[in-house]
Design a protein around this nucleic acid. Sequence first.
DNA 1: CCCCAAACAGTGACTAAGTCACAGACGCAA
DNA 2: TTGCGTCTGTGACTTAGTCACTGTTTGGGG
Lengths: 220, 220
Amino acid sequence: MTDSWVDRFSDLAALPAEDKKLLTERAVSVSLPAGTTVFAPGVAAESFLLVLDGTIRVQQVSSGGREIVLYRVTGGESCIMTTSCLFSGEDYVAEGVTETEVDAVAIPKAAFEEAIARSSGFRQLVFSGYSDRISDIMHVVQEVAFERLDKRLAQRLLALSDPDGVIKATHQDLAAELGSAREVVSRQLKELQRRGWISIARGQIALTDADQLKSLAGSD
Amino acid sequence: MTDSWVDRFSDLAALPAEDKKLLTERAVSVSLPAGTTVFAPGVAAESFLLVLDGTIRVQQVSSGGREIVLYRVTGGESCIMTTSCLFSGEDYVAEGVTETEVDAVAIPKAAFEEAIARSSGFRQLVFSGYSDRISDIMHVVQEVAFERLDKRLAQRLLALSDPDGVIKATHQDLAAELGSAREVVSRQLKELQRRGWISIARGQIALTDADQLKSLAGSD
DNA sequence: CCCCAAACAGTGACTAAGTCACAGACGCAA
DNA sequence: TTGCGTCTGTGACTTAGTCACTGTTTGGGG
């Protein structure tokens, strides 16, 4: 196994061979189809997850059925929600869903703890994963508490658009990104369309003036 | 040193003597007066902090001057914001302020890494600290995104009240707890007073019907 | 003792966002 | 073609946040 998955993680690639061996021998490769619920409130974790390919969306759901996206885990990142539960034994307060097909490796709790104890590179990977997620979630708090919805919507449209400036998402999907309500997003989108910055079709939005959107997204 | 500070942390009290020795020898005791800014955006951490006594309030501040409290670190807990920055090197996105006089021990980065490598109990402490904080912050997201302000205010009044049912805080202070605006909180408080659930004085609020407040705080 | 500057609190008018209850519109499958 | 489920539009209303004020208390300094 010369081109192992460990070489995809910069913190792990430089590891001593014996540490790499520990990880590669004990890890279990998994492949998940799009739309799989990786973890959810009320389910305890049993292993640590490293994403190789694809993206996992981590979100919270309210009792009233509204949702908000907290962050996404993409290739080369660890899913700290699993780590978190592995250690504290607490239940998840969020859920993780694969947005695409996801290739990952699952490291059982025992091997995880051994790797943490032995490998400083592995510790670095796990801790920086925690740090990054805390930053992400704090950013979400900042946004929902203090920022205007039109600005946040513009940010998301820019972030979610493909190279052609197209977003394939329903208004409901966008509302879930922002933690808002579908009707509110529909009205905001209509206003952006009125200004000529986007064009709206069923299940799809095209950016027609990205510069104006960037200006709105970056306004203080 | 028979009654060392390490015995205040359940994860550390059971440690082998040599691990305790490492921590106690390398840690630096600090005592901070109330109102000290422990960390703030744009300042990098240089050591890991364990709080022995007192509380540190961790909050975010918006460009418009509004604030929101994320969580509090109390005696026997680690301040993971310092850990986070220690590892990722990223700047703080929040600020920490002592609410009372705080006794703490600061563990330099080198000793921290050594302890992490050697002591599973210390790892447990650090990881569970992370997990708890992530839960806290996710809870904040849930609240600001989805819950009504009157319910959140009732929750905070109950949480902040002393055994006599009194809260010494200005309306501005409460607004900062909730990430809302002072005028909004003033109006909410007036409504609670109109219902006879609280009584309002300058800089102080007294709960007069905690049961009704609990009912509001727990409503779904 | 009185004055006065801060800090604290109250208010009205307005804008932004969320809720509720619908009514259309579109698109695929039977 | 005709449903039927998903997606979107809309009006009326409530809740929350903003702005620009005014009023009120309070603890020093003169």
